[in-house]
Design a protein around this nucleic acid. Structure first.
Length: 410
DNA sequence: CCTCCACTGGAAACCTAGGCTC
DNA sequence: GAGCCTAGGTTTCCAGTGGAGG
C-alpha cells in the first residue's frame, strides 16, 4: 500500500512541467499587460486627476469576457494608489464583483470594508450602511475613493439602478472627500436601460475593449508560458492551439490561459514531461466538465430537480420538452422523494435561469392553437449532471437516478 | 380574420433565517 | 424583547401574446 502512495507522492512532487503555475490563474495580474497599451493610457488619463487631489470622472468600461477589462482596471488602480502614496495624496480603491456580490447591501458592505469599517453581513438597512460610509469618508478628510464595480449589469438587472444613483449622489454629502465609480460590463446594451440621470453622470467617460486577435493571444500566452513552464515543456503548436480555441470564443484570454494551465496539469497528472496537443484537446473537454459540475452543484434544490426533469423529458428519444411537460415530470419527482413541488410560475423562471447558465436551451415559440411555450432541450452532458445530482441526499437515496442512467445506457 | 391555447413575464407580497438598535 | 432592517426563494394574481385552426 505504502509503495503505491509513495509513488503518487513522488510523481507529484518531483516532476512538473510547471515552474510557476500561479501566473496562469485567472486572478493573476501580470506586471505588464500586452496589447492593452491604449486602454491603459486612456483609463490612466481619466483617473489621473486624483493625484492632484481632484475627483476623477466616473468611467464606463465595455468589452466581452476575457478582453482584459478587469486586469487593466486593477493594474491601473494599483499603480495609481502607489503613486498617490508617494505623493502623499489619500487615494484608495475598492474592487467589487457584482456577479458574486449581487445585492446593494453587499456592495455597500464591501465599500465600507475598504474604508476599514466592519459591517455585519445582514441586519442593517442599506441607508444605514450608506450613512456610515459618508460619515467615514468625511472623517478621513481629503480621501478620494475609487470604486470599481465589475460586472455591473448583474446588479442592475436584479435590483435596479437605485444603488448607482445613491453612490453618484453621495458626493453632494461629502465635504472634502469624494467617490468615483468605474463600471465594468460585457453587456454593450446595458447602459441603454439605465435611468437618464445615471446614464449621464456614470457615463462621463467611456472605454471600449475589443477582443484579442489570435496573434495577440499567442503573444500573451507566450509571455505567461515563459514564467509558468520550465523550458522545453511545451510541444510546438500548443500555444497556438490554445489561442485558436479561445479565438473562436471571441478572443477570450481567460479561456486561453485556462486551457493552457489545465493542459499542463493533465501532463503532470499523466506523468509526462511535455505538454502536447492532445493535452490541450483534453483540457477543452475537462474545462467544460468542470464548469458544468460547478454550476450544477451550486444550483438550489428545485433548480436541480427541474434540470433532472429536463433530462427526463428528453429521454425517450425526444429532442425537447415543453414547460408543461417538464413541470408534470418535476412535480411527480418532487412528490416521489417527499418534497413540496413549487408552482408552475416558479418553474418557468427556473427554466429561464438554467437557460442563462447555458445548461439548457429554452426557446420561446408559439404553436398557435396549442399555445405559447418554451421549447427546452439539454445543452450539456447528462452523465456529468447526474453524477453531481447523486451527491444530493434526497436524490442519491432514491432510485430515480439509477432508472435514468439505465435509460441513457450509462 | 378572429379565437383561444399554454403559457410568459410583471408586480406585489409572503416566509424563513439572520441581525441591528433601543 | 420589541420593532425594524436585510437576503432569497417562493406564491398569488393577472394581463399579455404568436400564430394554427376554424
Amino acid at each position: 500500500m505504502d509503495d503505491v502512495l509513495d509513488e503518487v507522492f513522488e510523481r507529484t512532487l518531483k516532476k512538473s512541467v510547471f515552474k510557476n503555475r500561479r501566473v496562469l490563474l485567472p486572478d493573476y495580474i501580470p506586471p505588464t499587460l500586452l496589447h492593452r497599451d491604449e486602454e491603459i493610457r486612456r483609463l490612466g488619463l481619466v483617473l489621473a486627476p486624483s493625484l492632484k487631489g481632484e475627483k476623477p470622472s466616473n468611467v464606463f468600461i465595455y468589452g466581452l469576457t476575457g478582453t482584459g477589462k478587469t486586469a487593466v482596471a486593477k493594474y491601473v488602480l494599483d499603480k495609481l494608489v502607489k503613486k498617490a502614496g508617494e505623493l502623499g495624496v489619500r487615494t484608495r480603491y475598492v474592487y467589487v464583483n457584482l456577479r458574486q456580490r449581487d445585492t446593494p447591501y453587499r456592495v455597500l458592505a464591501d465599500i465600507a470594508e475598504a474604508l476599514d469599517l466592519r459591517i455585519p453581513f445582514t441586519g442593517l438597512s442599506t441607508g444605514e450602511v450608506l450613512g456610515r460610509i459618508v460619515k467615514r469618508l468625511n472623517l478621513l478628510e481629503d480621501t478620494i475613493l475609487i470604486a470599481v464595480l465589475d460586472e455591473i449589469d448583474f446588479l442592475v438587472k436584479k435590483h435596479g439602478d437605485d444603488l448607482l444613483y445613491k453612490l453618484v449622489r453621495m458626493n453632494s454629502e461629502l465635504k472634502d472627500s469624494s467617490i468615483s465609480l468605474v463600471g465594468i460590463t460585457n453587456n454593450i446594451y446595458f447602459i441603454e436601460h439605465l435611468d437618464a440621470r445615471i446614464k449621464s453622470s456614470l457615463g462621463e467617460e467611456e472605454l471600449v475593449f475589443s477582443p484579442y486577435k489570435t496573434d495577440q493571444l499567442i503573444d500573451i500566452l507566450k509571455s505567461r508560458a515563459e514564467e509558468a513552464f520550465i523550458p522545453g515543456a511545451l510541444e510546438n503548436g500548443v500555444i497556438e492551439l490554445c489561442a485558436s480555441y479561445a479565438a473562436k470564443e471571441h478572443g477570450d484570454a481567460r479561456r486561453a490561459l485556462d486551457l493552457l494551465r489545465i493542459a499542463g496539469e493533465l501532463a503532470d497528472r499523466l506523468g509526462e514531461d511535455k505538454v502536447v496537443l492532445e493535452h490541450v484537446k483534453m483540457a477543452r473537454v475537462e474545462l467544460e466538465k468542470n464548469r458544468l459540475t460547478e454550476i450544477t452543484r451550486t444550483l438550489p434544490l428545485h433548480g436541480k430537480l427541474v434540470l433532472l426533469s429536463v433530462i427526463q423529458s428528453t429521454l425517450a428519444g425526444r429532442r425537447y420538452g415543453t414547460t408543461g411537460e417538464i413541470y408534470d415530470i418535476y412535480k411527480r419527482t418532487a412528490i416521489d422523494i417527499g418534497l413540496d413541488p413549487v408552482t408552475l410560475r416558479r418553474v418557468s423562471d427556473i427554466l429561464s435561469e438554467l437557460d442563462m447558465l447555458g445548461l439548457i436551451s429554452a426557446r420561446l415559440i408559439s404553436r398557435g392553437r396549442y399555445g405559447k411555450t418554451r421549447v427546452v432541450s439539454l445543452e450539456s452532458d447528462a452523465k456529468t449532471i447526474i453524477n453531481v445530482l447523486s451527491e444530493e441526499p434526497f436524490l442519491g437515496e432514491s432510485s430515480i437516478l439509477d432508472r435514468i442512467m439505465k435509460s441513457l445506457g450509462i
